Amino acid sequence: MIPGRGAWLEFETAANGALYVKIDRRRKLPVTTLLRALGYPKTSEIKNLFKDIDTGDVKYIDETLEKDTSRGASEALIEVYRRLRPGDLATVDNARQMIERMFFDFKRFDYSRVGRFKLNQRLGLDVPNTTANRVFRMEDLVAVIRELIRLNNTQEPADDIDALSNRRVKLVGELIARQFRVGMLRMQRNIMDRMSVADMETITP
């Protein structure tokens, strides 16, 4: 999943059938860990999401759960945080705030109108293409995992990322808007850094 703005999600299937995800090309983790961190903490809930599709010879969810060391939402949040920010102090609050900013803040994550359209088209979703629905949704993650299991069971050929049907030409306005946004964010960061060390009694507008 490559949004117009924000963290990439790359899914892969191991030789034993376990499903993994990489967030922003960092170290991979079981998809069930991400599911627990985002709102499905119980193993029974996760199994119920895929019981009608995970019916092949290889039980992909069971294999993934065996590799999942987390046993609840708190452990999953900390595990995701450690994979994304190794070396930092991992707490449940820090991890939850990081994930909320990374996936559910429109300023940081945006599928774009075309991205939401293609996601609906490819996964058979019927999500209105509005600004509120262009951030990450749990239904998107579940639908992607279900489709991955279906492709593994049927052995259908995967989508060709280089096919022109999966590509589009970006307009000049989009490219300019993206660079303008990057510049404004850098300016905002610089202003906030300087304000944090300035003397509030002597500062002037």
Rank of each mutant, 00 (worst) to 15 (best):
W8R: 09
F106E: 14
K51D: 15
N94V: 06
D160P: 01
K42G: 12
E201I: 13
V21T: 08
A198S: 09
A163Q: 06
R27T: 10
T91F: 10
S112I: 04
I2F: 01
L89K: 10
V127H: 08
A76N: 04
I99M: 09
K42S: 01
A76Y: 00
A37M: 08
K107P: 04
M98H: 02
K28Q: 15
P30K: 02
D52M: 15
A198P: 00
D193V: 12
T13N: 02
L89W: 14
A132Q: 15
S74C: 03
D68I: 02
V197D: 14
Y20C: 05
T55N: 13
V182S: 13
Y81N: 06
D193W: 05
M138T: 08
R134M: 13
I191D: 15
S70Q: 02
M195G: 07
Y20T: 05
L119D: 01
R5P: 09
L151N: 14
F109E: 08
G6L: 12
R82D: 11
G72C: 00
V197K: 15
K47R: 11
L84F: 09
V127A: 13
D193L: 07
R178M: 09
G115N: 00
K42Q: 10
N166Y: 04
V114P: 07
G6Y: 10
S70Y: 00
T32A: 03
E10I: 11
K28T: 00
T13E: 13
G173Y: 09
N152G: 07
L9G: 04
L141W: 02
L119V: 11
P86Q: 11
N94D: 03
K170V: 00
E66S: 05
R150N: 11
R116W: 02
F103M: 12
E201F: 15
V142W: 09
D54P: 03
I161E: 11
L123D: 12
K118P: 02
